[in-house]
């Protein structure tokens, strides 16, 4: 497996703008995710990185711009056409988002039962395989509420893998986990990449995790892309916001009342511009 993937774009984002009501969150974002690479989207809280991920998987509609997945502009297609693309994508949510009324095994089986005509016995075997891959082989009949935080995330990954996706998305895989469990999840992501040549997109603010799993990284700040490049390029970045993020420098406190007002007004102004 080559480290950087091929040069063909699995996802291609062109001048993407996304707004919630009057508030524009992403102000024109352009980047590519190459087939087979692991792209980490970094950014502080409120930077728009989660919105970017939600737009990539089609949970938010862009106000303008394009999101091309496998050559299809998902901004311009119907929900039904989007569903066809979604079947080739898997998403692991921040809070795992397992269905609480179903067992872990049923959670993983759900997409298979709904979208395929496989025999029940085949589905059971596939569920065992998927759960085995994430290290939860013997937890098929547990309810999600009986699992720990890390196990829930693993189960969510198994569910995301159920349909053998081409692209896998992770929203904050290590959020709320202790460093050991978080490292285990990073390991899992690396293993999946090695085993399946998956295109993986990870949103995180954990630097250690990002540097471990990423082929390339993109740093999103206040709805703009500030830096995009390999780990080395990213480490060597001289952009003040990236340096602040890497060196963990706190935001200077707002002392001037006018500055504070500016900060509060900032969003509505940039939305109009």
């Amino acid at each position: 497996m080559n480290d950087g993937g091929s040069n063909e774009a699995a996802i291609s984002v062109v001048n993407l703008r996304v707004s919630y009501g009057d508030r524009e969150i992403l102000h024109g974002i352009t980047f590519d995710v190459r087939r087979g690479e692991t792209m980490v989207i970094l950014g502080g809280s409120g930077s728009g990185k989660s919105t970017l991920l939600r737009t990539l998987v089609g949970l938010e509609k862009p106000t303008s711009g394009e999101v091309r997945i496998g050559g299809v502009n998902t901004a311009a297609i119907s929900e039904r056409e989007m569903d066809a693309i979604r079947k080739k994508m898997g998403m692991s949510f921040q809070g795992s988002a397992l269905f609480g009324s179903m067992t872990v095994g049923e959670n993983v089986a759900l997409p298979l039962r709904e979208h395929t005509d496989l025999q029940e016995s085949t589905i059971r075997i596939m569920v065992r395989i998927k759960l085995g891959q994430v290290g939860l082989g013997s937890f098929e009949d547990y309810m999600p509420s009986q699992l720990s935080g890390g196990m829930k995330k693993r189960a969510a990954v198994a569910r995301a893998l159920a349909m053998d996706p081409e692209i896998l998305f992770f929203d904050e895989p290590s959020a709320g986990l202790d460093p050991i469990i978080a490292a285990g999840l990073d390991e899992l992501i690396l293993n999946l990449k090695k085993a399946y040549a998956l295109t993986i997109v990870v949103v995180t603010h954990e630097l250690a995790s990002a540097f471990l799993i990423a082929d390339r990284m993109v740093y999103v700040d206040r709805g703009h892309i500030v830096t995009l490049g390999t780990r080395e390029e990213f480490q060597a970045s001289t952009h003040p916001r990236v340096r602040q993020f890497l060196d963990r420098v706190p935001e200077p406190e707002v002392t001037d009342e006018l500055d504070y007002l500016q900060m509060l007004m900032g969003d509505s102004k940039s939305a109009k511009s």
Binding site: R86, M91, F93, A97, G100, P111, R159
Partner: peptide, 17 residues
Amino acid sequence: TKKVTEEVDALRTMALD
């Protein structure tokens, strides 16, 4: 609750309405 815990979003990303 399903909305808050992102289960509704999870359904949509699994192409389930």
